[in-house]
Design a protein around this nucleic acid. Structure first.
Lengths: 258, 258
DNA sequence: AAACCATGTTTCTTTCAGTGAAACATTTCA
DNA sequence: TGAAATGTTTCACTGAAAGAAACATGGTTT
């Protein structure tokens, strides 16, 4: 994110309002929007009215509460479609999934959460049904660990200063343990998940690097602990996933230096 | 979409720029944006710079082309999460899919296209792999037909005045045939798709009504013509899908009058 | 019933944020 | 190489956007 001399405040305010809605707060009232965004009441009302009339917010006339409108959905779909690494990664993901006969996924990091942006499924995963847009705590996920491990240290520091929640008794939440895990991940080039997200679920992930030498996404192969033994995870799937991630990285212009 | 006295032009321009990106044009140059949006060059540059610095656009420094940034993705995910009928419909969709041992889907109508917003898959569908965000021509899809059939007549008139493309030799593109089909759909309360979208694919869809007595979405069950005979489609799946749609409609506040 | 409070909506005034023209810088192409 | 196209910055202007205040509505309390 570059700091530009141009900052159209009105646009930023409109987008700020749209970004107030999330999984936990799918609807908001005018006052809630005003308070959350720190805006003058009249300004908030005008922004909300503008967004509503343009289809970006939808208002329930009875409750007077707002929720994102179809236009936001369209923006999101277009953004998913235009993710360069998603377009490039799709065929690789499909091939990986078929070769392993397990589910292969692609995700991005959003704060301390992993967000799924693509998925090729071979069989029903026990327990968790994760579709596109699904979010899980990053520290519990193989893909999350891979992306966190490759963050610039200052960014990682900010994220790790928050309290972390466990997902299962196997989850790592102790900061020291996590940092040791990130060291391991950076060295190996992949991250394992051994029932940390959900009991009965195993996964291995590797990072996708782009042409600016940043990790922009991660892929993984995941499945039931019944079909994925720990030995298979290490000896078969880790090399496969790592190689596929390397191919995708190369395909999107990664130069190989990190 | 209500016409409000408040229209903050700057916000609308910013959002207009964001909505220029789509599946066919995932990246755009400044000049392309300027021309497509009909903006003054300097204004376009400032809007684009604002959006870039806020994470809504990402610029490739080499090509100087822009594509949607992660922040748009986040908006889209939040919008998907906050779709009320999607939250309510998920368990019903899962149950329907399991009972039929076929794939169940949920979609919304966007112009003359159906956009998938949820999907519970039981087995690999022959041919088309449709994920969340996928779009198909509405006239070729069971869910599209159900939603079109229940549009206000003036809205439907506008959409039908455009030329329609066929998907397979079985597709309906003749206006007279479509209108007869919509009458049938309104009477029956469901729509069939008998290899109109893709050879070898059959589906049946029913509309989801909300508390304002509008059709806001549709669900369907679809599968291979090998596992879904025409008889099974009519006798087993159509009643199932219709009943599930009725339950979802009721659950989101539909009063039953239409 | 009246008073009070909270929220949503409209009106009015002010001023500077945002616009567009023009100039400049860089890149592309014949 | 020069011209054209594209991208970026500067400057002048004004009305678009902001915020204060008033008004409207609905719910609660005395």
């Amino acid at each position: 994110m570059t700091q530009s001399p141009y900052q159209i405040e009105s646009i930023l305010r409109g987008l700020q309002v749209l970004s107030l809605f999330n999984h936990h707060t799918p609807t908001l009232s005018l006052t809630e929007i005003k308070n959350a965004a720190g805006l003058n009441k009249t300004t908030a009302f005008r922004i909300v009215s503008t967004l509503e009339s343009a289809g970006y917010l939808k208002r329930d006339p009875e409750t007077k509460r707002y929720r994102p409108g179809l236009k936001v959905l369209q923006l999101g779909f277009a953004a998913i479609s235009s993710l360069e690494f998603r377009q490039v990664a799709r065929p690789y993901l499909r091939q990986l999934s078929e070769a392993a006969n397990e589910t292969a996924s692609l995700s991005v990091l959003d704060g301390m959460e992993v967000v799924y942006v693509d998925r090729v499924r071979q069989q029903q995963i026990v327990g968790v049904l994760l579709g596109i847009g699904s979010r899980i705590p990053a520290q519990c996920a193989s893909m999350g660990k891979v992306m966190l491990a490759n963050l610039p240290p200052a960014n990682l520091e900010v994220l790790l200063s928050q309290p972390l929640q466990p997902c299962t008794p196997h989850s790592l939440t102790d900061r020291g343990a996590l940092e040791a895990e990130f060291d391991r991940v950076r060295t190996q080039g992949y991250a394992l998940n051994d029932e940390e997200l959900e009991i009965g679920l195993r996964a291995v992930a590797a990072p996708i690097w782009d042409h600016t030498n940043s990790v922009v996404a991660a892929i993984n192969v995941s499945g039931s602990a019944r079909t994925i033994s720990f030995q298979r995870l290490i000896e078969e799937l880790a090399p496969s996933v790592s190689e596929t991630a390397r191919q995708i990285s190369q395909a999107i212009g990664f130069g190989g230096i990190r």
